[in-house]
């Protein structure tokens, strides 16, 4: 982590509501708050519908026009949510790089990969020759030692893993201060997943870049991130050091989620399951959104939504059963990982 106190990114009570024409408005994200120091890595964890992508798109200023935001997103001291479109265009490429989940659709199939990386550089004012030079450097950093030979290749000549590396090259070619990787390995084979995740970790350290790594796979998080933010149904439920989230999760949802992942060597049998399903973003829910599925819920949980509360240094939880009374009020069952 960097020495400076000044965070690169400050997200304050971010809310995102999608208002598509002809459908009910959906509150995808509400009350997200965190900051990120220069060079720091944060994993945003959650299942589908948890709001992780909406959060990331809001931070990158990439939300569609029918999305309305509340709160503030300060990136390098400026509020992105109120910035004019032309200014956002200019600032975004230098400040934020974005790696999407699906590398096959993120690349243009009829343009050589190297040219696409160079185009990303040229879009931010680099002269053509320099753009190509930077593109080659970015490709090498992204794991193409033979960047010159690969420069003219088309996306279809690459495997899924190599395509994602090309997308990463495109995202880092302007040396952004913040790289956002949105489920970058979900569309890939397991055999190449760890390679991509470790590359992101290496780039983060090598370029002293901040990283937001979005995943549904909690066990990938410690490879690239210092802290983790767990989302459930668009609300933050737990924020803390990744290691603590995995070793001693405090929120009942985080605990249930970890227990539902099969562990190697635990033998044949049933898995711990979370009953029910995630509420829809169009549902009006009073109280804690996890309460209907929570095995330690009380009447209060159904009445009143809990707020994020720091229960251990640097470890925040949004839960009536853990927060107010302190962690000692509720003995935590051992979770074996």
């Amino acid at each position: 982590m960097s020495e400076t106190d000044h965070p690169l990114l400050e997200v304050v009570d971010l809310g995102v509501e999608f208002r598509p024409e002809g459908s009910a408005p959906a509150l995808a994200v509400d009350g997200i708050r965190f900051d990120l120091a220069p060079g720091e890595g944060l994993a945003i964890l959650g299942e589908s519908g948890s709001g992780k992508t909406a959060t990331a798109l809001a931070i990158a200023g990439l939300l569609p026009p029918y999305a309305a935001t509340t709160g503030r997103v300060f990136l390098d001291g400026e509020d992105l949510l109120t910035m004019s479109e032309p200014r956002l265009e200019r600032r975004r490429g230098r400040l934020v790089g974005y790696v999407f989940q699906e590398p096959s659709t993120a690349l243009n199939p009829v343009i050589p990969v190297g040219d696409q990386v160079a185009e990303a550089a040229a879009a931010h004012g680099k002269p053509r020759k320099l753009a190509k030079h930077n593109a080659l450097a970015a490709l090498r950093s992204a794991g193409f030692p033979d960047a010159e030979a690969r420069y003219g290749a088309y996306p279809h000549e690459f495997s899924g893993g190599l395509r994602q590396r090309a997308c990463i090259a495109m995202a880092i070619v302007n040396r952004p201060a913040l790289l956002i990787a949105d489920e970058p390995t979900s569309a890939l084979d397991v055999s190449v997943q760890t390679g991509i995740v470790d590359l992101l970790g290496d780039l983060r350290r090598g370029f002293e870049m901040s990283l937001i790594f979005i995943t549904h796979d909690l066990h990938l998080a410690p490879r690239v991130a210092d802290r983790g933010l767990v989302l459930y149904a668009g609300r933050p439920v737990e924020l803390g050091p990744v290691k603590d989230l995995l070793d001693r999760p405090l929120h009942p949802y985080t605990r249930a989620l970890l227990a539902a992942v099969p562990q190697l060597g635990s033998g044949r049998g049933r898995l711990e399951e979370i009953p029910g399903s995630v509420p829809s973003a169009t549902d009006q829910v009073r109280g804690c959104r996890f309460a209907p599925r929570c095995d330690s819920a009380t009447d209060l949980c159904g009445e009143e939504a809990p707020g994020m509360c720091e229960v251990l240094p640097g470890h925040m939880v949004s839960c009536h059963r853990v927060g107010a009374a302190g962690p000692s009020a509720q003995p935590l069952p051992e979770i074996r990982l």
Binding site: E47, S48, H216, A256, L257, A260, V261, G269, R270, L271, E272, E273, I274, P275, S277, V278
Partner: peptide, 14 residues
Amino acid sequence: LDVSMAAQVLNLLT
């Protein structure tokens, strides 16, 4: 499927 749904479906299969 998501983690929590995957566990439900796997248990159902069992």
